[in-house]
Design a protein around this nucleic acid. Sequence first.
DNA 1: CGTTGATCCTGGGCGC
DNA 2: TGCGCCCAGGATCAAC
Length: 297
Amino acid sequence: MPELPEVETIRRGLEPHLTGLTLQSLAVTDHKVLDISARDGKLSALEGQRIEAVTRRGKYLVVALERHYLIFHLGMTGQLTLRDPARADAESFERTLTGLERCDQHAPDRHTHVHILLGDGRQLLFRDIRKFGRVYVLERASEQLFAFFRLHHLGLEPFTSDYNLRAFLAAFRNRTLRLKSLLLNQAFVAGVGNIYADEALFEAGLHPARKASGLRRAEKERLFSAIQTVLERGIEFGGTSFRDFVNSEGEKGANQEELYVYGREGEPCLKCQTPIVKTVISQRGTHFCPKCQPRRR
DNA sequence: CGTTGATCCTGGGCGC
DNA sequence: TGCGCCCAGGATCAAC
């Protein structure tokens, strides 16, 4: 679920609340989600540090403390929510709602693996049903973050000067795989996952099974723009909530209503009415319009 | 070096 | 109602 637009939505939700607050205490209840290098007691060193910034690179969310970085990757089902125990609906997660009552907060449950208590009494909770998510702790020395991103093979970062046509074209070098696989590779463009890969290929009018090596320059240029377009739209609509994604307030996004191909198998293409086709490419469900995205150019 | 496929988890939906 | 099976938005690493 959480691809760049979802992580950015969470980041924007957290940043104004977290910046300036103190991380009072941190408890990890399932150490599987904790990166091995952080399991040696480095955690207590975080307590008492002030939160200076909340940033993002690809699908990684970075909380910059005074002397450390606390990094979250949400995997497939990860959720990072801000909870105010003093709020009226704080406990409603655990009881039956009636009438117009709403519950936008997640009370901790058996899937909540990291509990962070903040200086103002609120909590930052990391919850992840499938446990594919990870939490990393780095010392905040120069180059540490850069090395972390290099270790995780992160490629071009959309919406930065990093993401320019020259670099994009260069990233096609020695690539023979299919377009869908290329887009899922974080070493190509960081932050694109299964949903936005399908949407970007539709936006660019490119068949997902075409080889990266077979694209003309004009087609690469279309893909370059399309990736930005679909990510931008995803952020604008607050992320895509198919199953698990919620923002930092526990609310669903609206981008699932704006998708052209993902999850629309058999439904008419919104541009040409041709039924959307679903196949499997590199073990991932792949959706496309056979008419708008022809196999041969 | 690039690419492919298996694998880590849990829960929901579906068919029987 | 219950059970088994398949599916799910990600990243890594062994093997080719």
